[in-house]
């Protein structure tokens, strides 16, 4: 029951990690920055805000600093790249399947509620920490920054301490 994955099997995790490391290295050597995902999402958030209420967003302290065109930013394009690359890989390996991923005994509504609340919490936390798993944990740790390593350890601490509460959504 556990592994219901469609299509081709995944790549060997060490090989996938090695290739991901080479991608990160290429980003360092060409762009001069690491990888990032949450920065792009936050820019989209600011853009949505501008569509609804431009005055208050432009005057706000945090989003306001990004100006009237927050999407003109390299991390927004990187996010679009993640979307493209992920889609091509999933499509070629026949792994695209419309579903709400969850344990068989978990109602879809509960799973989606957890995904939504978890998303709000994670989105908020990325702004506080200035990055997510990509920009802070992966990039920061590869550069051996104090903050990157601390973020990585804190993420796993937060995850493992509360994992028990959220285990049921995966029960079959």
């Amino acid at each position: 029951m556990y592994n219901e994955q469609q299509g081709n099997p995944y790549l060997n995790p060490y090989l996938a990690g090695f290739l991901l490391g080479l991608t990160l290295l290429a980003s360092f050597l060409i762009l001069g920055t690491g990888l990032g995902a949450s920065g792009g999402l936050a820019r989209i958030s600011a853009w949505c805000g501008l569509c609804i209420n431009p005055e208050s967003i432009l005057n706000s302290e945090y989003f306001g600093a990004w100006g009237a065109q927050p999407l003109k930013y390299y991390l927004v394009f990187m996010l679009a790249g993640i979307l493209l690359g992920g889609f091509v890989s999933a499509f070629v390996n026949r792994r695209i399947q419309i579903q709400t991923e969850r344990g068989a005994s978990c109602p879809a509504g509960k799973r989606l509620a957890l995904a939504l609340i978890g998303g709000i919490i994670a989105g908020f936390a990325t702004r506080l920490a200035r990055g997510c798993t990509s920009g802070m944990a992966l990039t920061g740790t590869a550069l051996l920054t104090t903050g990157g390593v601390a973020f990585l350890l804190a993420t796993f601490a937060g995850g493992y301490l509360t994992a028990y509460m959220f285990r049921r959504q995966w029960h079959d």
Binding site: E101, A150, A154, F156, G158, G159
Partner: peptide, 13 residues
Amino acid sequence: GGFIFGIGFVMSG
């Protein structure tokens, strides 16, 4: 931020 992010991560997957 990392600690809060970890909670959001495990909650949402």
